[in-house]
Simulated scan of single mutants.
Amino acid sequence: MERFQAGAHWGGRKESAAECAARAEEFFRLLAGCDPAYSRWFEYAYSRKNALRLPFTPTAETFLRFFERKKYRLGRDAFYFDAWTGQEQTGRGGLLNLTCGSGTPFYANGCLLHLPREGAAAQRVLTVPVLKQVVRAMVLAWEPDRCAVVSEEDPSARRVVEADGACIGWLMYFSRAHGRVPSLPRSVRVEPVEELGTLIILTPEPFSPGNPAHAELAGRVRERLERAGLLPARAG
């Protein structure tokens, strides 16, 4: 199956450890409702054996304890955290990377979730209904500027949580505060996410940059989003 990741980015927003911990609790709570794959979590470690010794319950109190540790701090004010779902699979499916609380561009605030890529979990999660809920969890918890579910085969995927990232994803979200989503090709679904922003769904089936029809559609959507100022224009 195609490999995907879901990422969210938000600009400088200085927040305390307690504020970040409350948002993290809400995110993990909402994510658990998306699929059973997100019902248990472990602190990330460099070996599976060590990680499985580090289960945690994702409450605000737990995250506050984590953010008070030096290992989970970036500079004086920002925080980061890596978690793993414990899924035994090739690659990094189930890994979550989080940076929050930063008020400066030096540390980019963002959330990156490597989606399941094998077995029953992948069959369940890599569908539009479930991915809509994953994006919604990111939006409601973190109030990001944008989100995207991106194929890891796309060279721009590595920049999905960067301020100037110009990713075109299978699903995309743009905050209402950063502009209005323009009219898009008729086959593209556009839906509101509460009062916060707009969700775009390019295709009902998994998006693949190697599919000529998908690539052509993505190009047309990118052009309109660039003209609307929602994506940075590509160099050249």
Rank of each mutant, 00 (worst) to 15 (best):
V190Y: 10
L115M: 10
M1P: 11
R76N: 12
F79K: 07
R189A: 15
F63V: 04
K132G: 06
L199Q: 08
E195G: 08
L231I: 06
E226W: 00
I201F: 00
G86C: 09
A120Q: 12
F79M: 10
E162D: 06
T85D: 07
Q5K: 09
R69P: 03
E61I: 07
A37C: 08
T85N: 11
G12Y: 07
V149H: 00
L171Y: 08
P212M: 15
R146M: 03
E195D: 15
D35L: 01
N50M: 13
G75S: 12
H178A: 05
W84C: 06
C34K: 12
L184T: 10
F42A: 02
G93A: 11
A51Y: 01
Y46L: 15
T99C: 08
C167R: 01
D82R: 14
E19I: 03
R227V: 06
C34V: 14
R117C: 12
T62D: 08
D145I: 04
K70G: 09
A213F: 01
S151L: 04
P58F: 10
P232R: 02
V190H: 09
A78T: 14
A235N: 10
L230H: 02
G11S: 15
Y80T: 07
V125H: 10
A21K: 00
Y173G: 06
E205Q: 01
Y46V: 13
A163N: 09
V161F: 06
R159Y: 13
R92C: 04
P36R: 08
L196N: 11
F4Y: 15
Y38L: 07
T59A: 07
